[in-house]
Design a protein around this nucleic acid. Sequence first.
DNA 1: TTTACATACATAGGAAAATTATGTATGTAA
DNA 2: TTACATACATAATTTTCCTATGTATGTAAA
Lengths: 112, 112
Amino acid sequence: MAVNNELFKGTLQTIILNLLSENEKMYGYEITQKVKSITQGELMLKEGALYPALHKLEAEGLLETTTEVVDNRVRKYYSLSKDGEKEVVNKLQEAKDFIAQLQLLLNLKPAI
Amino acid sequence: MAVNNELFKGTLQTIILNLLSENEKMYGYEITQKVKSITQGELMLKEGALYPALHKLEAEGLLETTTEVVDNRVRKYYSLSKDGEKEVVNKLQEAKDFIAQLQLLLNLKPAI
DNA sequence: TTTACATACATAGGAAAATTATGTATGTAA
DNA sequence: TTACATACATAATTTTCCTATGTATGTAAA
């Protein structure tokens, strides 16, 4: 019963930034599990998509990292930088506009 | 004030099919103008995206075409095939699910 | 004990979709 | 005659994501 992942193209950065705006710090695997639980298993965030996206956001200065070792396993924690905190506001507004426009285009405006 | 087109990736087929489910028949340029007017100029559908998408949907048997000459210009009208009529229902449901999941992931659930 | 699965990171190769740029052609308004 | 609108189309490139693969540890089941 998974959703059509095709439609989520372009939304990954916004999803990551928003999760980090709510959670102080998160590591990659944790993000995949969070997305899975929020969508009740419908959206499976793939590692091949997540890690490159995290690296890109870090390279752009939107994310900062710290590394911890837990149970002999390395965890790389990501958190929003100052710039990241600003950008997440923009991204969320863009997402709101996008949803509104898409609902207009598809006649999906929820009944008042 | 255009929206971030990045987010619309993956939604083009659904938008086209839905417009054709509401309009009997439309030609390419008309679709670009319709999208522009519905979104009040925020989403500009590019020809380089639209025409390949139309050709693909036709190749998949979801669209049928007829050609007319108006004012010495050729117009290629597209309309939904039987399969297209079925597929638009699926695509719209997928879009609804997508929006619901995205709102969940971004905490954008409209207040009740 | 060894197999499978979960945790945790990462990257290479390829596919799909869109953008940019370009091309053809006609009609109209400045 | 220049610019813009109408109307189609495609080639080259970019972006984004998925699939597949790789490394490594811990735990539960068979």
